[in-house]
């Protein structure tokens, strides 16, 4: 209780200390603890004329400021889970809540970084971020936009259009746009999946730096186990059809994490096993190999 109080007041101090909030624009009011909870969510989609369950009884809790990664193979519903949290989809059963507020629709308290950068092609970097910035912010817009361009390291590229940006730069612009309203939760849907390995590593380091600067809660969906271990405080393995939570891991390795460390490799092994071994108890080794090959092929393809 006391620790909650402390972290809450610390968060408020953080918000007040942000340079672009100290001007005339009002700081967002932090009314409650920013814990995000997903409780017993079911979600299905009508595929053809068949109602196909995608998520079954998914529950998770992320404390304010925590970094959660959701991993799983393709088709396990991890993107759907993120969309439910974003409010873009509604769960048939169960609920999503941020603090004491039940999530029913999208809102500025949850920023989203999409799989593709999703920038508007006719707007340059500056205008794209301006587009994302809430219209209720009337004064100091230029400074807020400039600060976020600096935050993601795109100074000097403000006037470029998305067609002129590399994949990594476009994703940086998408990140700046998602952060520009100071969301309490940032949702990232395989944001680096389409980048080459070197750029991906660079972006992961950048994301940690931004996370430390912004102190927002992060929920990142990925099929890259190493990415999850490198970034997360907590990892949730989603699996099966319909997808449900197979296992949860707390990552207590000190940051910055060494991808070659033994603790890292150990955790990687455990997560592999969680994804492949526990498939309803008795997945044949043949089936396991097939799934493994599929996953490897997929991570190479993207």
């Amino acid at each position: 209780m006391l620790s909650q109080l402390i972290s809450s007041s610390k968060r408020m101090l953080d918000v007040a200390a942000r340079p672009f909030q100290s001007g005339t624009s009002p700081a967002p009011v932090v009314t409650t603890q920013g814990t995000l909870t997903v409780s017993h969510c079911d979600k299905s989609f009508l595929i053809g004329d068949q109602l196909t369950p995608i998520l079954r009884d998914v529950s998770l809790t992320v404390e304010a400021g925590q970094f959660l990664c959701v991993v799983g193979g393709s088709g396990c519903g991890k993107s759907t889970l993120l969309r439910v949290i974003a409010g873009l989809e509604t769960a048939e059963r169960g609920s999503v809540a941020l603090g004491d507020q039940v999530v029913t629709k999208p809102g500025l308290d949850r920023g989203v970084v999409f799989q593709e950068h999703r920038l508007l092609p006719w707007l340059n970097v500056w205008q794209n971020i301006d587009f994302g910035l809430s219209q209720s912010v009337r004064s100091g817009r230029d400074r807020i936009i400039a600060d976020h361009i600096r935050l993601v390291g795109l100074e000097g590229f403000e006037m470029l259009h998305p067609g002129q940006l590399s994949g990594g730069m476009a994703q940086r612009a998408g990140l700046a746009r998602a952060l520009v309203n100071h969301p309490r939760v940032l949702l990232l849907d395989e944001p680096f999946g389409a980048l080459d390995a070197l750029t991906r590593w660079q972006m992961q380091t950048e994301l940690l730096r931004i996370w430390e600067a912004e102190r927002a809660t992060m929920i990142l969906v990925t099929h890259d186990i190493d990415e999850a271990i490198y970034l997360a405080d907590q990892i949730i393995v989603l699996g099966g059809r319909p997808g449900n939570v197979r296992q949860r891991f707390q990552v207590e390795l000190p940051r910055p994490r060494d991808r070659g460390a033994s603790g890292f490799a150990e955790l990687r092994r455990e997560i592999w096993d969680a994804i492949f071994l526990k498939d309803d108890g008795d997945t044949s080794s043949f089936e396991r190999e097939r799934l493994l090959a599929e996953l490897v092929a997929e991570s190479h393809a993207t």
Partner: peptide, 15 residues
């Protein structure tokens, strides 16, 4: 996808 983006950012109709 741009419609979704607009929902996430609470973009008004005119904008």
């Amino acid at each position: 996808r741009h419609v979704e983006l607009a929902r996430v950012h609470e973009i008004g109709w005119w904008r």
